[in-house]
Write a protein that binds this DNA or RNA. Sequence first.
DNA 1: AAACATCTGTTGTTTTTACAACGAAAAGGA
DNA 2: TCCTTTTCGTTGTAAAAACAACAGATGTTT
Lengths: 224, 224
Amino acid sequence: MKKYLPIFRKASLFQGIRDVDLTAMLQCLSAKQSTYQKGQVLVQKGTMMSSVGMVLSGALHLFNDDFWGNRTILAQVEPGELFGETYACIQTEPLHVTVQAAEATEVLYLDIRKIMTLCTAACTFHARLLQNLIFVLAQKNVLLTQKLEHTSKRTTRDKLLSYLSAESSKAGSATFTIPFNRQELADYLGVDRSAMSSTLCKLRDEGVLQFQKNRFELTHTMQP
Amino acid sequence: MKKYLPIFRKASLFQGIRDVDLTAMLQCLSAKQSTYQKGQVLVQKGTMMSSVGMVLSGALHLFNDDFWGNRTILAQVEPGELFGETYACIQTEPLHVTVQAAEATEVLYLDIRKIMTLCTAACTFHARLLQNLIFVLAQKNVLLTQKLEHTSKRTTRDKLLSYLSAESSKAGSATFTIPFNRQELADYLGVDRSAMSSTLCKLRDEGVLQFQKNRFELTHTMQP
DNA sequence: AAACATCTGTTGTTTTTACAACGAAAAGGA
DNA sequence: TCCTTTTCGTTGTAAAAACAACAGATGTTT
């Protein structure tokens, strides 16, 4: 297990927990490791999750097949990242996605009850683990809320303005850089790239904003 | 504080905690109560939240003003419900919304550090409180993820199919009822009601589904 | 420097949606 | 029962987006 320490140090769930405490804790939590071949299904949609999974090596795909069999890949899970944590925390709600190994993958499973149930004593790092879990959930929440706020606007124009306004607010300035290129931004906002590009230029021509590459500047113009 | 027990019994955060334990715990957490007039701003966007708020009576509005001053009301918080819990759990991220009293409102504030820090002993209900907090966060997560999965589809048609497919899956049957009327469904999916209505009828004419009022049935037809 | 790949803006066409306005059906209340 | 309100489908029009295809710009590799 020691060879995974570099992964653990990066993992959000284990932040602030020292290596020595970590190895002790993993035993205390009776963590279990599994290996999967490429293409193998780890967990089927509809399963009740009683544990959180952490990818140690390789990668996972989360996907969903709709009523007519059309498959949508929803996320890729990389080393240090978790999967199933939300549903493990709820316990009554079955997993809404299927988890499949995108390549040969090693996974560490942590029993959610052992995480949530505070061991009797001396386990200061266990408290930290719980705080980290809460932090992970809350952070995901923020990301989802923000994305939803932008994508829920009806037009590409409004989605762009909502996103750029939020980035400006985050930067605390009318000038800021965004972490996406055009294609990534379009995917994030759920719109077509070329249509977005032309909308962006239309906004520039109207004097609402300026940009060069990933650097944007919003300008104060009166809205009609 | 006793007069709020009916509210507390319904509140997700206090589920599974008995009245006697609750009153004891609220003291232990040094909960603080505040009263606000209609229109008064409780918390400004950008504030760091160090506590969770619970509405005791009245109602709150969460809103966001963009760079150009356009206001969007994002949610209404009713008695028993929380606000700021996500940002309180993160601690490093400032609140992304402004909180305003929609009417005369009473609010109970709970220090997040006292919730997260396990008191030394005998506090079995404190553990339950933590589990409830995690549950609240996780459940919100599920709701956001689902909505995002539907709204991220490009066309109204795909949004509908994604949503109905998920409802069918949840019901475990091709026949099911949905908890929305047309206008609510359109709002949920972020589309125009009348356009959605016509799309829905087009799908019916194509033989993809059938419906009467809120009762739907998906039919297995080969996709091209 | 040359060759290649990627990123971005542009344009034109087709499809889809938003919007507005209306009437019928259903639900609810007096 | 009659009246009112809400809900839902329908239609036509204008606006917007998706899509496809391309060219210039930028960046990278050899």
